[in-house]
């Protein structure tokens, strides 16, 4: 098999390395000369296997659960997410029914098959169905794998019971999130995903969603609801872990 450098156009020049140009006179060479030695290769592979965290901002290193929750709500709201705090998962159906009503939406809801079974019988007027997104669905409910306090992001992954288009096609996106699934930083999410993959690959799609869809393409003013949801509503279930 040809090497990467031979396959990518003129990368050979990279190996031969030209004489230093005018701007690089006083600099140490940064492009490697010649092929990798076995030791160097081992070092690179070790770096990949260890995937060390780089410098993280202080907020990303927060470890106090109450402060993580507070920061998540604040960052999410700053990104135009609305957050409702529920004391138990059983309160989800009524919270959704209230949301539909207050937004003048028809009482119909498309559920991600991966959403837990909530006591929907408590809201008999809301018609629920489960499955992948259809063009006509206006409101979807999907469960988040985690929430990131640093950025206010929701983490949603694809899977056999978690279709991705539900996060993007409907106009209103309602997401359930257990407070115990809140983490400080994206790095914490990667560790969880790696643990879940157990040496295998990531799910096909991992979405970090930070607010509803928006565009600034008309005279640079921000408008919500470009192609994806116009509104993103989080039901934060404070289940004490």
């Amino acid at each position: 098999m040809p090497t990467a450098s031979a396959r990518v156009g003129h990368e050979r020049r990279f190996r031969k390395r030209r004489g230093p140009g005018p701007g690089s006179r006083r600099r140490a060479p940064r492009a490697r000369c010649g092929a990798l030695t076995d030791d160097a290769k081992r070092e690179l592979d070790q770096r990949l296997a260890a995937h060390p965290r780089n410098l993280q901002p202080a907020v990303a290193r927060e470890s106090d659960a109450a402060r993580i929750l507070e920061r998540f709500v604040q960052a999410a709201e700053a990104a135009d997410v609305t957050v409702a705090r529920l004391s138990s998962a059983d309160a989800v159906p009524e919270a959704v029914a209230g949301y539909l009503q207050s937004h003048n939406l028809p009482p119909r809801l498309r559920l991600s098959p991966g959403a837990e079974s909530y006591p929907w019988e408590r809201v008999p007027l809301v018609e629920t169905s489960r499955g992948a997104a259809r063009g006509e669905d206006r409101v979807a409910l999907t469960p988040a794998l985690a929430g990131v306090a640093e950025t206010g992001s929701l983490v949603l992954e694809s899977g056999p019971d978690k279709p991705t288009a539900l996060n993007f096609l409907p106009e209103h996106h309602v997401v359930t999130l257990r407070a115990s699934e809140l983490v400080a930083s994206p790095e914490d999410v990667w560790d969880r995903l790696r643990a879940a993959a157990g040496g295998g690959s990531l799910p096909r799609t991992v979405n970090l969603i930070t607010g509803p869809s928006r565009t600034g393409d008309i005279e640079l003013t921000i408008h919500l609801g470009a192609h994806g949801p116009r509104a993103l509503h989080v039901l934060l279930i404070e289940d004490q872990g």
Binding site: A75, A78, A79, P113, G131, A132, A133, T151, G152, S153, S158, G159, P160, D161, K162, P163, T164, A165, S201, L202, P203, R204, T205, V206, N207, L208, I209, T210, G211, P212, S213, R214, G216, G228
Partner: peptide, 24 residues
Amino acid sequence: ATGQPFSAYTTFSTGPKRADDLDG
């Protein structure tokens, strides 16, 4: 780029849909 702390959608895509995924 835009002065946002984070953009609305950051998406990691890995391979095609898995055998029993519902979309992708």
